[in-house]
Structure formats: structure tokens, C-alpha cells
Amino acid sequence: MSEVSGERSGIGRDQGDQPSPAPKTEALGMKTENLSAFYGAFKAVTDVDMEIRPNKVTALIGPSGCGKSTFIRCLNRMHEVVPNAYAEGCVKLGDRDIYARDTDPVTVRRRIGMVFQKPNPFSKSIYENVAWGARINGYRGDMDELVERSLKRAALWDEVKDKLKKSGFDLSGGQQQRLVIARTLAVEPEVILMDEPASALDPVSTQKIEDTMAELKERYTVVIVTHNMQQAARISDYTGFFYIEHMNDPGRLWEFDETDKIFSSPNRKETEDYVTGRFG
């Protein structure tokens, strides 16, 4: 663990500072080298080399089934949770290979949090939803303060501060998703992975999540899979386009560049066809 943490201390870092205005904090970047992902004998993603810059939002776009969700799940070793699924290649958080033999996936996931497509709050109170992750990771500080700070950073505090004891299920879908983000922030990860976090939400909730993301990159490295290209264009600094050239091929990282470039003049025709909606 200590080797992974780099310049930051563990879970209780910058404890006590006020969440807003959020001071900029250096997060770690990530890097994949020749990363391939498999489901049993089926190769879903092949040979991805990507550099995920620290304190930036990196968006992954591409047609359905092109491997972007699989890829993002490889970034915190979540992919291998699925039976028979495994990954090959190298994924680095900072300088550390998270697939190294002596690395425990559980510690990897604490450093690299994840928010899923469907809001998945635990069957606990709002307070406990946020506190739980920090508690199992041995957080010893002021829990009330941590819960408040995390909820504030996820832009949910004002809406729930009077009903922290209520079940997480009592919240709307958009609030649930922000609760999940708060829960992830409470563990103080370096990187936050989001797998289509707003695809199940209404436009107003989506907008709130997007606004939250702009603030998150002040302290974290963010990677987001999205089907909404305008969303990718709005919120991300870098964009990776995943594509499958022929049926049954594994997905590839077809183009990776600054978002401005991808959405104004991408280098490859397939990327341009996809972002302009001329795909297929």
C-alpha cells in the first residue's frame, strides 16, 4: 500500500480542510500498456495503450459492445470479479503496476474508485452509505465531518443534510448517483472511474453530475465511459474512441486525443463518422 500511495498519505489526507473552495490536489495518473481483456476464451479488448493524465477528465466513447466498459473495469481490477474474466498487460497507477503479482485487488480498488451505470446505494442510511467504505478501510477520523465533506463534494449535502438517517433508497435516481459518488469520495481515491454514470438519469440530474465532475478533477483523476457524445465533449479534457473494425474482433482504442481535437477534427474517419452520428 505504502508504495502505491506516492506523495499522499492514506485515507485521512487533508482532513479538516474545507470542501469548498476545493484546493487543487495532485492526483496520480494512470497508464495502460498492451492491455487486453478476456471473458474466458473471448477477447473483448486488445492492446490498449493509453495515458490517463492526472487531474483531468478522460472520456471513453464508442459504439455499444466495443469494449470501453470492459476496459474501464480493468483499470481497477473490477473486470476479474466476473467469473472467468481476466486481463493481460500492464496497468499503472503512478509508477506502480496494479496487476503485479503481489498487489491485492482490494487495495487497488480503494485507490481507484468506481461509479456504475445504475445507481447502487447500499440498503443502509444515507450517512452509513457514505461512512461504510471509509470505515471498512480503517478510517479513524471524525466520521461526521468526513460524511459532510464527501456529500458536499458530490453536491448532495444541501439536499440530504436533514435526512441523513433515511435510507439511501428514498432518494431520487440522480441523488442516489451523487450519493454513490460521495461514497466513493469518502474513501479518498486517486482515480474515479465512471461507467456511464448519467445514462439512467434525467437531464437535470445529468447536468448536476456533470457539474460535479468539473470540480472533481481539481482533486482526482477522472475516467468516464459515456454513450452521450455531447457529454464527453462538454466535460472531458481527453477522449478515447473505441472501435471494432470487423465483427467478432476485439475492441481497440482507435483514436485518443484531446477532446477539442476529437470533436473538431479527429484524425481517423471512423472517429469522425461516430462523433458526427454518421456511424453505420
Partner: peptide
């Protein structure tokens, strides 16, 4: 239509 890429250009 929120054009992007070649459409935007």
C-alpha cells in the same frame, strides 16, 4: 443538431 467534427467545421 449540435454538430461536431466535420459537420461543425
Amino acid at each position: 443538431q449540435a454538430p461536431v467534427a466535420r459537420d461543425l467545421r
